[in-house]
Design a protein around this nucleic acid. Structure first.
Lengths: 146, 146
DNA sequence: ACCCACTCGTTGGCAATGCCAACGATCAGT
DNA sequence: ACTGATCGTTGGCATTGCCAACGAGTGGGT
């Protein structure tokens, strides 16, 4: 008989918990976004624009933790789809000012819903209270790192 | 004045929580392992061997969720460092049997400590009870996915 | 004994991710 | 005017996680 064991999860030490959890969650997020033709950078950029308003590309990178070069590519893609507009800053010829279009805001809301569903499916095995506690605790962790 | 704002964290919707958290945790894990010359696959493979004993490469892949091709490369690297041994299976000429060496086990213990420190630094902003609860809840989530 | 379907290890490739270096243009402070 | 910094942009690199294909080998069915 061909011993074809089903995929198993390593339990051993708790040290690998982070590795397992991040891999799983990252796949969830990427799949959810990919299903609607988006990627992490798309959401990062749209969310930054939605929350803080129009900005130069360099500022966008700082807001979302993206490299300047990746901002270029992402703005290109989002502009092609009509989700953002890029125009030169009249007051500083080095800069472009990037703005969200209404269509871009709608797309962001869509991505929000998609990500919300991904989060729900991740928290599915937990009680409502556990899920809320997990979200709260993760926010604490993220706030503490800056 | 050059407006050089410090990097900020997006808060907006809670939907992006997963994206933020996974990115942060993944970087922590990769940096911790990279500091001692290891990568995620190395730990996955060593841990699988340590927990379930010697196995063929295909089985190793299934145990740790690695692709067969990645198992080849990882076993190559680990074998070069003397952490595992690869020899043909006498009972099935298609297979290799991979075994951990004592040196490999020692290395795994080292990686365990390193990952434990990374986890501690991540949980630093939490109380002991919150940290344990987070670990417990994450285990529930991982068990539920298979 | 002969197929057939499957598994094995291996090679090679692909796309996404996250970085870094360098360039010319522009700006701010002196 | 000179100097140093910032801007957008291009191009590159290493890692990560996958998938396809190959030749060699195995097991079941007939």
């Amino acid at each position: 008989m061909e011993t074809s064991g089903a995929p198993q999860r390593l339990r051993g030490t708790t040290s690998w918990l982070l590795g397992q959890a991040t891999t799983h969650a990252a796949r969830l997020v990427s799949e959810a976004l990919g299903a609607v033709g988006a990627r992490r950078y798309h959401y990062s950029l749209l969310a930054a624009l939605d929350e803080f308003g129009p900005a130069s590309q360099a500022d966008l990178g700082r807001r979302g933790g993206l490299d300047r070069s990746d901002v270029v590519a992402t703005v290109n893609e989002l502009a092609d789809k009509g989700f953002v507009e890029r125009r030169p800053d009249p007051g500083d010829k080095r800069r472009n000012i990037v703005t969200v279009t209404p269509s871009g805001v709608a797309h962001l809301r869509h991505l929000d819903r998609v990500l919300g569903q991904a989060q729900e499916s991740l928290l599915a095995p937990l009680s409502a209270a556990e899920g809320e506690e997990l979200v709260r605790v993760l926010n604490v962790v993220l706030e503490h790192q800056g």
